[in-house]
Write a protein that binds this DNA or RNA. Structure first.
Lengths: 243, 243
DNA sequence: AGGCTGGACTGATCCAGAGCAGCATTTCAC
DNA sequence: GTGAAATGCTGCTCTGGATCAGTCCAGCCT
């Protein structure tokens, strides 16, 4: 065992059996450790970057800003997730990333990634798989915004977060610690903060979920799944076919 | 000149200078020509597939279906676009694809793609670039649903379609031929068909766009851009950095 | 020619969710 | 410890867009 298992290693290992070479290469991605204060804007929309980050601890969110100042959060990143992987391969980013809490992350340079992929092809497919999973999540968020009511949206969102966190060993069936404010939820779900509050209260009163004091508790997991039509298929896709 | 320039070639060439080898490999992708009737479901959510398609003529749409039967259209595909590229690399698809009109397409097998990428690396990056652009469009649709009003959404959507079609030589600044029904628009924009109709009428009365008889005419292009906050950045990103 | 179908269009009604304004509580800076 | 921000919570009003329940028109088929 080279290093203490990182959340990313844990996540990838759940889907692809990584060889020792893969694990060593992955460990090399974790050399430059950096930390950021809560609220720090890590990636700027429209700017070019030469590095991506692997989130080790803390939460971030990626979002786009509209001319009128409003923002739409596209996704949250939790430990084990990549930040700005796509912006490394392309010259400019189409979205920004901001630290929600204080963050510990590993900075990975473009060259590290390309070299790493060259000598650890299995790792490359694993990372591609993770990227594809992120994309599937964005599509699911699109469906969420387009076709579900505020309560269904919220339920679906919390269940998805729960499933993602469980994979990296944070939280379990009963719930998880969650540093998001109701403003974050509003920006992600396309609702007003006031309405988020009401929806949360209603779900709590119905005995479905409780989101208070930085903790989400699933009071009636099956009920939530039924309400939101949550289906983990898009999260649990089989690993890549690519040899 | 090997073959008549396909829409895909045209699109990729606008961003990456393709070599003769690239062009030959690309031409080999076009060997199996197939056609489908309007309304045919080409890719089924949850099923595995061993082939993708390159759209040569006609329109398609990719969508997800909810338990209650409603659907959310994620994106439309126009000539030059790939269908199901991701489902080739991964075992199952998370969405379905349906032909909107009668379609002419080239079927590409997984092996063709992988072999092709191996001996034409520049082509590989070009295709990756196209895939990344598709992803950026999905993100933009997310913002559209989450933060824009019905009219802004419609304006933004029509402008995006116009820009995409222009790139493959269909339509120009003044407008384009569009086979979509108002039901398609409703399913894509998260609105009811009735409301789509009202929004279109209003935009027409304001002298902004006219969508009638299968044709979209931009009556006041600048006005539409201003209304929707349309910014082509996410469509015009520079080509890939990957060598 | 008559009947049928699919899409465009309209008006009336209803409700989910926005916006605003105000208050309570916690957290933090100094 | 005290004032100032954040953050959470609530009641009220108002509106954007959904839903229902149709009409109208242009191809189709037979």
């Amino acid at each position: 065992m080279l290093i203490l298992q990182s959340p990313l290693t844990r996540k990838l290992s759940a889907f692809v059996a990584l060889s020792d070479t893969d694990l060593e290469t992955l460990a090399r991605f974790h050399r430059r450790r950096r930390s950021f204060l809560a609220g720090h804007q890590m990636i700027h929309e429209g700017h070019g970057t030469q590095s991506a980050f692997i989130l080790a601890d803390g939460w971030a969110c990626s979002y786009k800003t509209l001319p009128d100042g409003e923002r739409q959060i596209v996704d949250f990143q939790v430990p084990g997730d990549f930040l700005g992987l796509r912006s490394v391969l392309f010259r400019t980013t189409d979205h920004s990333v901001e630290a929600v809490t204080r963050i510990e992350a590993s900075e990975v340079m473009t060259s590290d990634i390309l070299d790493g992929f060259a000598n650890a092809p299995r790792l490359a497919t694993a990372v591609l798989w993770a990227a594809s999973r992120d994309e599937a999540m964005v599509v699911e968020h699109l469906v969420n915004l387009g076709r579900r009511s505020a309560e269904e949206r919220m339920a679906h969102f919390l269940l998805e977060l729960g499933a993602r966190l469980q994979l990296v060993g944070i939280g379990d069936k009963t719930g998880f610690a969650c540093p998001l404010t109701q403003y974050h939820l509003a920006d992600a779900l396309g609702l007003s903060a006031v309405h988020v509050n009401r929806v949360l209260r209603h779900l709590r009163e119905e005995g479905l979920v409780t989101f208070q004091k930085g903790r989400v508790s699933f009071d009636d997991f099956a009920g939530l799944v039924a309400l939101s039509g949550f289906d983990t298929d898009y999260l649990d896709q089989d690993g890549p076919l690519l040899r």
